[in-house]
Amino acid sequence: MSENIERRRFLKGIGAASLILGPMGCTSVKDDNEDANKPHYVMVFDQNKCVGCGECKEACNVANNLPDGKSRMLMEHQSGGVEGQACPHCGKEECNCERKFVRVSCQQCKNAPCVSVCPTGAAHKDPKTGIVTMDASKCAGCKYCIGACPYNARFINEETDVADNCDFCLNSKLSKGELPACVQQCKYDALIFGDANDPTSYVNKLLAVKDSVRMKPQFGTEPSLRYIPVVKLGV
């Protein structure tokens, strides 16, 4: 008799527990896993092709209505020479002859420090595209995101007084089905943009055959901006 009650209680317990734990188990799975059906927009900067003309910056300024002379990206001019020694190309001590540039802009981290430190959620990931962007109406201008960004890629827009970053022209171009302004502008094919989760996209094929690097990988931010570096000087 008592054994029966014990067994009944045990079965009831199993039933209740499975009812409670079942849905919990189902909901917690796959929260962080990469969903292949969602786009993962990436940009590739090919240092071998960039000549440093700076037209990408102008296009950025126009497309995103930024204050005069400001853009969401910079071109860093790198000189391959060693300080104090003559340039291997022109033989001068100080020169600007080597055209080696690096794009400095928001790296569109998968694991973005700016998003996790933003106290208001103004710096956020666009739910549809996963692109790190700004909700200017929420930003309080505390500059926490600027200090937290390992790439120093964020700034205060002097006109709106809120933080700003390169969001691949999410609202100005992508939403209209266009490519980012800088990519459209570049005459030298130094900028390639696309969805890395789309097996047919050009950027996907390019990354499959080309070696590319990500900036400061030790921070674990997993940037979506990739660089194809110049690996050696000419023969």
Binding site: S116, V117, P119, T120, K138, C139, A140, G141, C142, D161
Partner: peptide, 26 residues
Amino acid sequence: LDLTNPLFFWRILVFYNFTSVMSVGV
């Protein structure tokens, strides 16, 4: 006063993000 626009301070009091130390501090 250190905010880019001090009049925006109410946004920190209205919007919260619990992964942000600043928000928890607020």
